[in-house]
């Protein structure tokens, strides 16, 4: 059995300290050790995007990182998007039927959150490019693109108090 290491980080603003094996992925760490199961695993090889979280503000594949690599970092997950209720991006997904089974949705939301921070008025083409690393098997993407357009408009009109870190 491999030696365990202390990992200290913040997840959605809360300090977390756990003892983990070096081979444990950040995704498994979040799901099993921190018990935040909103981050989903679809491929465990970095293609599907379901496990996307924010690491020090940047979107990353939590299945391709070890928990020990996130030592000292700020991690943001879907559970931290809104303090209470829903974030405007989440509301837009609801309004536009932009989810079906909901399995890809957390990763999709984190990617969109990052996109709209960098680019507040993306075109449909730009939205589609930004979502290229998040596979949705249910919707066909059209409704997701609609939702992102609507969320962008909403965020331009009234930026929320930022929750995800």
């Amino acid at each position: 059995m491999a030696e365990r290491h202390v990992v200290r980080l913040t997840v959605n603003g809360e300090s977390v300290e756990r003892l983990v094996e070096p081979r444990k992925t950040l995704a498994d760490f979040l799901r099993q050790d921190v018990e935040l199961t909103g981050t989903h695993l679809g491929c465990e090889h970095g293609v599907c995007g379901a496990c996307t979280v924010l690491l020090d503000g940047d979107p990353v594949r939590s299945c391709l990182l070890f928990a020990v690599q996130a030592d000292g970092a700020r991690v943001g997950t879907v559970e931290g998007l809104a303090h209470d209720g829903l974030h405007p991006i989440q509301e837009a997904f609801h309004d536009h039927f932009a989810l079906q089974c909901g399995y890809c949705t957390p990763g999709m939301l984190m990617t969109v959150h990052d996109l709209l921070q960098r680019s507040p008025s993306p075109t449909r083409e730009e939205i589609r490019k930004a979502l290229a690393g998040n596979i949705c098997r249910c919707t066909g993407y059209h409704a997701i693109v609609d939702a992102v357009e609507a969320a962008a408009a909403r965020l331009r009109a009234a930026p929320p108090r930022e929750a995800a870190r």
């Binding site: 559970e79 989440q90 609801h94 989810l99 089974c101 939301l109």
Partner: peptide
């Protein structure tokens, strides 16, 4: 939708 969007 609500739960699924919130990661619940």
């Amino acid at each position: 939708d609500g739960r699924l969007l919130a990661g619940q």
